[in-house]
Amino acid sequence: MEIFLQQIINGVTLGSIYGLIAIGYTMVYGIIGMVNFAHGDVFMLSAFIALLLLLLLTQMLGLAAAPAFVAAMVASMALTALWNYAIERVAYRRLRSSFRLAPLISAIGMSTFLANFVTVTQGPNNKSIPPMWDDVIKITSGGAYDVTLSYKQILIVAVTGALLAAFWFVVQKTALGRAQRACEQDAKMAALLGVDVNRTVALTFVIGAALAAVAGSLYLLQYGVVKSSDGFVPGVKAFTAAVLGGIGSLPGAVLGGLLIGLIETLWGQYFSSDYKDVAAFSVLAITLIFMPSGLMGRPDVEKV
């Protein structure tokens, strides 16, 4: 029982991170119907940027760990947003009217480029930082096993919740959100009605990247280690989360993220940790095959 509870806590933490990445997938898919394959690598890149900035602030400027982390995270959000802006501009914008698989192939190319770019510039090995902010709250004690909840975990879940609320507000209430939904429905019509489609799509990529950067920073904080091949598997899992929640749906992405996080940790605990990725990949395949509109998505009627 204690172990189960602990795994639930760990799963929700991991799931929050997946959910943050999944929002990037789901927003881009919603607006231009493209599987942004490189998004996982953008997440990895953001973790590297946060790592380097953290080291820069602590080693060179002598800042304390906590403020340095917050500063690194915010700066990483800005820089990763710039990266994704540039990526969209260079690799995807021209392809919106190309043949249907062109954006996906381009995104695969971009994903390959980013992973190897970081490998070349930072080396292929694990980069680990000393653990920070390790205080925990004991939820149960005295049993065979102490269930703990760390401040980091609380922070991760709280940040995810706050960001979800903020973006829900943006999409529902602001001009940007209206423009996004207009482009989703019919980009050509939106353009005729004066919506700047290019700007709206670019902003969507920028927001997605900023959220991925939050996820990257929190990932670094929680697990303390990152390497250049870390974009692929978390990326696919976050995409799974987006699909499971119903692609195009914001709360769906977070719900999907939590589910994937839980499935992964519980599977790892009770079945086999070697095969924990198989669980996520199977969920992906099964969802796409049997319920492609996910838990909270709209069904897709084939137009003839």
Partner: peptide, 20 residues
């Protein structure tokens, strides 16, 4: 080999954009 995959990635992006 690392540069190979880096260039492979760029080449795929370039192909899709300029000579699909």
């Amino acid at each position: 080999a690392q540069y190979r995959m880096l260039l492979v990635g760029l080449a795929m992006v370039g192909m899709m954009n300029f000579r699909p």
